[in-house]
C-alpha cells in the first residue's frame, strides 16, 4: 500500500469521481427498473389521457370515410 500512495489524488478529483460513480450508479438503477418506470408512466397516461384520445381517433376515422 505505501508504494501506491505516493501521489495525492487531491480532494476535488476524488469528490468528482464520487459524483461520476453516483451518476453511473443512478443510470444502472434506472436501466434495471426501466421497464417498471415505463409501465408506471403508461399507467398514469392510461388513466388520465385515454378517455380524451378515443373520440379523436373516432373523429379521424369518420372524416377519412367522408373524404372517400
Amino acid at each position: 500500500m505505501p508504494a501506491y500512495a505516493y501521489l495525492d489524488p487531491a480532494t476535488g478529483s476524488v469528490l468528482l469521481q464520487g459524483l461520476l460513480a453516483g451518476i453511473a450508479g443512478l443510470m444502472v438503477v434506472l436501466r434495471l427498473y426501466w421497464g417498471q418506470v415505463k409501465a408506471f408512466f403508461r399507467r398514469l397516461r392510461g388513466q388520465t389521457e385515454l378517455p380524451a384520445e378515443e373520440p379523436k381517433v373516432a373523429d379521424r376515422a369518420i372524416s377519412e370515410q367522408t373524404r372517400q
Binding site: A10, T11, G12, S13, V14, L15, L16, Q17, G18, L19, L20, A21, A24, G25
Partner: peptide, 23 residues
C-alpha cells in the same frame, strides 16, 4: 473539480471520502 476543491478547503471533508469507489 475546482468547485469541489474550493468546498473542501472551506468545510471538513468527511472521512467517508476514502470509501469512494469507482466502478
Amino acid at each position: 473539480q475546482a468547485a469541489f476543491e474550493r468546498l473542501s478547503t472551506k468545510r471538513r471533508v468527511p472521512g467517508a471520502m476514502k470509501e469512494i469507489r469507482l466502478p
